[in-house]
Design a protein around this nucleic acid. Structure first.
Lengths: 342, 342
DNA sequence: TTGAAAGCGTTACCAC
DNA sequence: GTGGTAACGCTTTCAA
């Protein structure tokens, strides 16, 4: 065997449809038809084509297909952080919803920064994704609407609507109400709230739920009892330290999210304040790990996986030029062991 | 304004380089050269091209570029789970390492299932990624080597090597040794181990580290003290329940990973066994949240972000036909508050 | 400095 | 049924 011949076998030669066609003695069109089942191909040609494909280890070039077809069968996802258990749960839902239809996900993250988000969406569009799913973020509605002139968009956690933009949100307000209702039902009156970033839609909804529920029960809201957090553990820790230092009386804490609750929990632990015996604690999100904190955290579950399924389905609908629709999954209070009956 | 004219403005008309060219009165080649800085373009043409691009809101079609160029500037990542804080930390590292070079990540997950992994890699290659990064998984080394005939591969958590395959692992064995050494230094002798899945390379390394360290200190290993887990919280919980039920004496637990430790922690909590006063606990991984458990968990940190950077850099090197190289980041014991001095 | 044209790997239309 | 061939939107010779 000559060296050249040998090289041929070794090199990572990606074969093309043309090579298959000529090796099989048919036209490229026929091979294409065979591959896609676009039209009948006679039994004998079919057989040789199959054999040649196998010999050459031919795999279609999706790039070329996409260019020709005008669709990449890819949906772009703008997340905010690759490391967020919150977003990633939704991502899994999206993937599960669209993968049967042959779509893959192209994921980019915007890190809660409007400029970066826009830049990423631009990249996504440049790569010709068929649609983009936007998970919350700080872009303006107008920016989203502008992008939607170029690509269909489903926006989660935003209530923007447009010709090719479909947004939907979970009802964070109601979730917060449920949490506070529960605390009140357990006899709590002095309830502190560690809020999320006030430029964050969901954080504001949760705070509003807190206020309104208190009001509905004619419980006087002590403004000193709501302190700022930032949706992170360290934020929760700091916030609670502040609260404790202020020497305020309270029997329960409603944290804007689970991470905040974890931080608060640690602050309490450090001072030997027991949960729930001394202070009750409820979170928001129901992260994977909240079932395994000590004590297991009572929290409001966000049905992120289902939301992801919803995002995926809506996207599929838009791509099929149908009206996107579907229920919005409900939040629900998961009662575990971090709240005490007063 | 006629309806037709109006439609033209509204439609999501993606303009092409040809349109730009003809509108600017130059050849497509010139526009391309301007766009890529491939050759000098006279000042006046340059200006009109710029203007037309702006007017038409032209954006290059990366698909067509890639097809022509033969590179998608995309690196495929085979992860095992989109929801794993462990893998995602590495992912962020990879992204940070390659994004400056203009690469994006195409992420697919194999769910620890060899067949699915192979299928995903096949999809990745079909989409013509320039390289693929494999994060552990259950494929055989041979499969990886086979894939590497078609695309350069860097495999993390595997020690496969080949012409276009570069694998590297973190030293889990040493990490485990350090953890157990520490426990021994704190006076512990009866140390239980909740192992990981025994078909998992890292799990085996950690178990070996446990055994060898005990042996090195001439501490008799009680085989009943090592119980099976599965790297999950529930596995840890169950394992510890078993251990407790067997009524064995031990003062410390070395869990195969942090999730397992969380589960064990809860099992202890349920029985009012204090950590670390009654039982000491050390984990492995140092997940984000381990700093905020109660008590904060002493654990072996896996420098996953750095590993991700390493993966990215090695990939870049391979793509540049250079020899991939670089340090392997070291594991380190993070001492927090879950171990007691005996 | 610029343009014409070939070609990247497909699909699909138009003939036969 | 099947083949020829023109696109898809770009880059890059080769000439001028």
């Amino acid at each position: 065997m000559s060296p050249e011949r040998f090289m041929k076998n070794v090199e990572s030669s990606t074969s093309t449809l043309y090579q298959v066609a000529s090796a099989a003695g048919v036209s490229p069109a026929t091979v294409s038809r065979f591959l896609n089942g676009t039209a009948k191909v006679s039994e004998d040609k079919r057989r040789t084509i199959e054999r040649v494909i196998d010999e050459l280890n031919y795999k279609p070039n999706r790039l070329a297909q996409s260019l020709k077809i005008g669709s990449t069968r890819t949906i772009g996802v703008l997340t905010q952080s690759l490391e967020s258990g919150y977003f990633n749960r939704a991502m899994v839902g999206i993937e599960d919803a669209v993968k049967a239809a042959g779509y893959a996900l192209l994921i980019m993250s915007g890190h809660w920064h409007a400029d970066e988000e826009a830049e990423r969406v631009e990249l996504l569009i440049g790569r010709r994704v068929d649609g983009v799913a936007i998970l919350t973020g700080n872009m303006s509605d107008q920016q989203i609407l502008d992008f939607s002139k170029r690509v269909p968009i489903v926006a989660f956690g935003r209530d923007v609507q447009g010709a090719r933009t479909h947004g939907f949100c979970l009802d964070n307000y109601r979730g917060a109400c449920e949490a506070v209702e529960y605390l009140i039902a357990q006899g709590h009156r002095r309830i502190a709230h560690i809020a999320g970033p006030d430029d964050h839609r969901d954080a504001r909804a949760r705070l509003a739920g807190y206020h309104d529920t208190l009001a509905r029960h004619r419980i006087e809201a002590d403004p000193r009892l709501v302190v700022a957090g930032d949706f992170s553990e360290s934020g929760g820790l700091l916030a609670l330290n502040g609260l404790l230092a202020a020497n305020l009386r309270f029997t329960a804490i409603f944290a804007a999210n689970d991470l905040t609750a974890y931080g608060a929990r640690l602050a309490l632990y450090r001072r030997n304040i027991r949960v729930p015996e001394d202070i009750s604690l409820v979170g928001f999100d129901d992260l994977e790990s909240s079932m395994y904190t000590t004590p297991p955290l009572t929290t409001v579950r966000q049905p992120l996986y289902d939301a992801g399924i919803g995002i995926g389905r809506r996207m599929l609908a838009m791509l099929a030029h149908e009206q996107p629709e579907g229920e919005v999954p409900q939040l629900s209070l998961i009662v575990r062991e971090s709240v005490r009956l007063l």
